[in-house]
Nucleic acid binder design. Sequence first.
DNA 1: AGCTGACTGGAAAACGTTTTCTTCTAAGAA
DNA 2: TTCTTAGAAGAAAACGTTTTCCAGTCAGCT
Lengths: 340, 340
Amino acid sequence: MAVTIKDVALRARVSIASVSRALHGTGIVTEKTRLRVERAARQLRYTPHGVARSLITRRTNTIGVLLPDIYGEYFSELIRGIDRAARLRGLHLLVTSSHGDATEASLALRSMSGRVDGVLVMSPYVDAQLLGNALPAALPTVLLNTPDDTARAPAFMIDDYGGAKAMVEHLRGLGYGNIAHITGPEGNYESAERLRGFRAALGPLRAAKALVLPGAFTEESGYLAGRQLALVTPRPDAVFAANDVMAIGCLFALTEAGIRVPEDIALAGFDDIPIARFVTPPLTTVRAQTTELGRQALEELARAIEAPDTVSCMKRTLGTQLVVRASCGGAARSARRGTD
Amino acid sequence: MAVTIKDVALRARVSIASVSRALHGTGIVTEKTRLRVERAARQLRYTPHGVARSLITRRTNTIGVLLPDIYGEYFSELIRGIDRAARLRGLHLLVTSSHGDATEASLALRSMSGRVDGVLVMSPYVDAQLLGNALPAALPTVLLNTPDDTARAPAFMIDDYGGAKAMVEHLRGLGYGNIAHITGPEGNYESAERLRGFRAALGPLRAAKALVLPGAFTEESGYLAGRQLALVTPRPDAVFAANDVMAIGCLFALTEAGIRVPEDIALAGFDDIPIARFVTPPLTTVRAQTTELGRQALEELARAIEAPDTVSCMKRTLGTQLVVRASCGGAARSARRGTD
DNA sequence: AGCTGACTGGAAAACGTTTTCTTCTAAGAA
DNA sequence: TTCTTAGAAGAAAACGTTTTCCAGTCAGCT
């Protein structure tokens, strides 16, 4: 049986109220009793029961994080940003991931309810509609890269559309005329946005003719797309993968097929995961501020929790940055290390 | 204000006890009242308050996960394994990471106490000693890759020593005589074990002469080590990096310096992260069953929570597997794709 | 010396559940 | 009709805290 505040009170010969006051530092307590309580607590190895405390204070100091799937460096970066910010504020993180469909997401959210002070939802498949009735109305929520920007909650997004558009414009500026695209998974919001940016940069005519290969944000899918690409005639002179890991998978397939990057075909990715600059050739990509996204989202959530009455529906789109390395030839043809 | 069981009881015109019974499915309730309660709950959008429930049931259905740092694919894989197993058992995950030193780790553990049914600790810097007095004695604990195998808790480890030894023996078998090593961070248990395996495979004489470069399990540190390596004369004919991301960073530095892998120097890593097979040349490495490690650890913890009286100190070392790809030349010289 | 006031510490309520114990109702048998 | 009994529902305790309210004590001032 765990040691409770009662045991401490008994040993220190004071009331449980005094124990609480002495340990929590609040309230007025004599130096003498404080010392006595502290000694008793130490001897008994007392740690307050978080659950009981939460019940009375109505604060769990925990925020729920709902992620689509923990996979690859992208999510590592995201969680890093969230975790750091949370730690700074003394918040715990109740993480759940890999929810495939809306039902699972909804279930996960419900099971969190009453255990968290707020939730951070990254759910590229789920719209706010569903969220609305999975969550108790009053629970502070912040959305991450959600498809639905009409949601009645703050939302933080990466500028997928703008980033993709800028990249493809960059490629066109370098003289590439036949640009292919490897998409993310079907139905994924970010995937769709990047595709939309790709098409916008090409213009309707070229977009209609452009080769679009289906991918799934995994190395494997990028590799398979690369293999297809190697067989296509006429071969595109550039390929823009919807994320870095697919670009790397694709790069491998191309290299394997004897197609040189960037001499025979230019290659670009999206995200700027740490490893992108360490492949050969270093990957030209779009830097998404993934860690920053996580940090800002958590900060906003913390703010919403502090001031529950001020309902904010603020939408914030984090800009991206073109990171030009060697994989697209052009200005950065030499294999310099992209410290940017 | 959130809707409580009282509100439901009021609306359904029954006692709160009946509401609890009706919703929880336990106890005997008339079909009629069950229906009435369910309807009221639905209309009010009632979700039970997890904290209050935990207080009385003495179960949080949450397990705490203490990780050293969430970085790169390795931890993605680990969390994946833990998360999947947890979800299967209906357990929540309270994740905390990035604790630099023992004090921080201890603090993190204390702040979890009373909120979790058990903890999963991966702490390559912290020994069980410290754990002992950070945790309430009775809290079920499972250790992951801990330095201290005398701990009074079950522990799961990757066979870092054996894996490294096997790899270096493989390299020697291929005829490489001057093998360098890039280590993990100072003071890290896994890092030390892999170094020990490296030395054991070489034997004391060669080990004394072998080039050992300090790394930090990051791409950057591997890259820097690779740059140093490129300047060393006589150049080693093989290099074994203590993990894959360092190997990839190193690979880039070597390529950049015009040193070919595997023709001029062989390269091997450790972990077999998903991307390892998609670099050029595909990386020979030691497959660590990271996901499986997480899964098994969680299963054992769940078992310990179910049966709190049966104290187990079981140690389990998960075997590794040599994954031979092209980066070390030899048998797999041709750039085949290692589906293994 | 007595009174006032400040300050400390204790008793008890409250948080939202689950669960035990008790009570009540209704049905069936005598 | 009345008694017995089973089954359903309600009352209340319990979980471990925090915090409010109140009582008691001691010191200082008149």
